[in-house]
């Protein structure tokens, strides 16, 4: 029995020793790999081997070389004796004579409360102080100044005759490429298929709408030519461009705002004003 146990321990010791050696090898492997700029996979595996070797060695040491289980510790209870708790409560509630009437305590509350409230004011600094608040900012976009040319995402102005019915062209106001509330798209449709008038003036069959989903503001990027529908890849809202971009499926409940456009004398598309309603998702004071 004793000899058997001794052999068992010997084997465990050997296994733990092997694991620690493997860990050291892994660490050396990582260092060498790093020095020679090895691949991420190699570095990761080497480091993992180093850690796993240590884990195995420690685990063997804990499970097979040390005592496990079989111990008990008394639990002194969760609460103090009642008298002790009472004594503490008494001690806490006797701060001094003047405090007892409660007036001072209330005034202290007033002082601390006022300081807390006053300290809330600097929160306004979190919005750049010269910028107008959300009600104004959310309603207006750079298109508002009117007469801006429609440019594509590289900043090149879009001509009316370039707009086809095959796919949408994503546009920004000239000078505002990348503006978060301004992206729009233009596409050519057959006006005879319209079941509802577009919300904003188009040019012949060309209509322009905000690209931002009215549900959660993702770019409604997928156009299906046959049905004249736009799909949002985020939450699968569908907007029917033949019916004034009305939402026909998914969680969006408002149509895409239209962008009034015209053609200037050189054939470029220009916006005549802002979107027909605030673009993007809804908010409390949205008209």
């Amino acid at each position: 029995m004793n000899g058997h146990r001794r052999r068992h321990i010997r084997r465990a010791e050997l296994a733990a020793a092997g694991a620690f050696l493997l860990a050291a090898l892994g660490a050396v492997g990582f260092a060498v790999g790093y020095a020679f700029g090895a691949q991420t996979q190699l570095e990761g595996v080497a480091l993992a081997v180093a850690c796993a070797g240590s884990a195995a060695g420690l685990g063997i040491g804990a499970r097979r070389l040390g005592p496990a289980g079989g111990h008990v510790e008394e639990h002194g209870g969760f609460a103090s004796p009642e008298l002790a708790a009472e004594a503490l409560a008494d001690r806490v509630t006797e701060p001094g004579r003047g405090w007892r009437r409660g007036v001072l305590v209330r005034l202290l509350g007033l002082a601390v409360g006022s300081i807390g409230l006053a300290l809330l004011f600097p929160l306004r600094s979190l919005i750049a102080p010269r910028l107008p608040g959300p009600t104004h900012t959310l309603r207006h976009t750079p298109w508002r100044s009117g007469g801006l040319r429609l440019v594509d995402t590289t900043g090149r102005p879009v001509r009316a005759d370039e707009v086809t019915g095959n796919d949408i062209v994503v546009v920004y106001p000239e000078g505002h490429v990348g503006a978060g509330d301004a992206p729009a798209f233009v596409v050519r449709l057959d006006p005879s298929r319209f079941s509802a008038r577009p919300p904003a003036a188009g040019v012949g069959g060309i209509v322009a709408y905000s690209l931002l989903c009215t549900h959660a503001g993702c770019a409604v990027g997928l156009y299906e030519q046959g049905t004249g529908q736009m799909f949002c890849p985020c939450h699968q809202s569908v907007f029917d461009l033949l019916a004034g971009a009305r939402p026909v499926a998914g969680p969006a409940s408002r149509p895409l705002p239209g962008l009034p456009i015209t053609v200037d004398s050189s054939g470029f598309l220009r916006a005549t004003g802002d979107f027909s309603s605030p673009p993007g998702p809804g908010y409390w004071s949205r008209p």
Binding site: C51, A55, L58, G59, P67, H71
Partner: peptide, 30 residues
């Protein structure tokens, strides 16, 4: 309700918890 039964912090759980730490790191890096 008046006791805790198991293994002691030293050496059982010290080794076990260090082993677990190393194992978590190993999984993370792998």
């Amino acid at each position: 309700e008046h006791n805790v039964v198991g293994s002691r912090l030293w050496p059982s759980y010290t080794l076990r918890t260090l082993a677990l730490f190393a194992a978590v790191l190993a999984v993370t890096f792998a």
